[in-house]
Design a protein around this nucleic acid. Structure first.
Lengths: 229, 229
DNA sequence: TCAAAAGTGTTTGTTCTACACCCATGC
DNA sequence: GCATGGGTGTAGAACAAACACTTTTGA
């Protein structure tokens, strides 16, 4: 137990390690978070993030993906670690340290039926229900990180459909950052970075005129020097 | 054990939770990291970060401070969590998940004797010895974070002596960022942010002419809008 | 008197912001 | 023909980068 560290613990460590997943969803209008309704004690009937324990032989990252899938059916997405919450009294029932993982997804890409089946529901980030433990703090922390990330990495491009329009992309940024963006300035920056490919097709679902579709080009992105929005 | 989560574990969780501390030291010339020499098996005679297990009733943050003090004598400094390393095979001897914490300190503020007593030694960040487990990755990750932090928060000001000179401050930034900075531009930015107080004293230890001493003013900093270097 | 570090401003280029009108189409 | 969202350029302000000489003083 204490073999490789310079100190002998007389007590046996009794800390449970968990993961919690903060899934942000974009729906063209607002930013939402996926929560599950607790159908079990304790804290029955309250809302919480999707969380669970880490398996003995399981990588921490893997645990996050497994737990997310078990509780919401979601898979094939990319989560990043946010931070670890370790106050000894954060869970009043037992000692649990929890590492949080977060992702941003397009709601329409994922089957709403699955979400229902799993007692999960989307809540706008600015109208969360009362959550158990320190889950509100976890969400706040993940949201700060997401807002930093979208400005410095092409987070948004990965998550949109393969083909997307610039107005769509802009709405994504406006929703995540919760601020309006001037469309000329936005397009200028995007075009300057030069890793979108303009297609010859238009998407007419949002307007009569139709908006040109674009594709993200990863190779061009890798070669580009910097990303900043 | 599994009371509050939506799943029953048949296995009992056997994961040990640890903390590792990455202490960066600034010595006017280069950036160094504090490591300890392992006088015990396994991995005897190799170098590692200062790490230890988390106590059952101990906040994760508190554990980091305790472990650091026990292994290096260092205290009264401010550490921030970096990230948690959780691959199941990161430690070949047992399953340990480790959360890293990091700080930047002025070497001269801390008693070198203590460091000797604790078998600790400073290594330049660009000339590390071979380290156990994933400790090199931990250091790399903490260093990336530090470089981001010094540009967006007054990390450096807190750590210098109460009174310091602008050339000292600039050297700190040059060493941390590992790049040269134009002194006129640097001073302009610092002065623009307007939260240093110029004193009437000079420090003559570095030059014949002497450099004016300054103090960081936290109140002015809080009131200021932004920090960017 | 000279070597060594401290201190000081200006110019130029780049990036950010604000802002208003025409276009294409389906109804 | 008009309402709806898509598309485009420019001027001014703020910020970043490059650059060279004078000052002080201990040895």
């Amino acid at each position: 137990m204490t073999r490789h560290l310079n100190r002998t613990y007389t007590e046996i460590q009794q800390i449970t390690l968990a993961v919690d997943c903060i899934i942000f969803g974009f729906n063209n209008k607002k930013l939402e978070v996926l929560l599950i309704h607790r159908g079990f004690e304790p804290e029955k009937d309250r809302w919480s993030l999707m969380g669970g324990f880490v398996g003995n032989e399981e990588d921490l990252d893997k645990a996050a993906y497994r737990v997310l899938k078990e509780l919401s059916g979601l898979e094939d997405l990319y989560m990043e670690q946010v931070r670890t919450f370790g106050k000894s009294d954060r869970d009043p029932y037992e000692r649990v340290v929890s590492t949080t993982y977060s992702a941003l997804i397009l709601k329409e890409n994922y089957d709403a039926g699955l979400v229902e089946k799993y007692r999960a529901r989307w809540f706008p980030v600015d109208a969360l229900p009362n959550l158990i433990f320190d889950h509100e703090e976890m969400i706040a922390s993940a949201l700060r990180r997401l807002r930093r990330r979208v400005r410095t990495a092409p987070v948004g491009f990965n998550l949109l459909p393969k083909k997307f329009t610039l107005p769509q992309l802009q709405r994504l940024y406006e929703v995540v950052l919760n601020e309006e963006i001037d469309k000329r300035n936005f397009r200028k920056k995007i075009m300057m970075m030069d890793f979108l490919i303009k297609l010859d097709e238009k998407d007419k679902s949002e307007s009569k005129k139709g908006a040109f579709l674009y594709q993200f080009n990863r190779v061009k992105y890798e070669h580009a020097k910097s990303f900043s929005l």
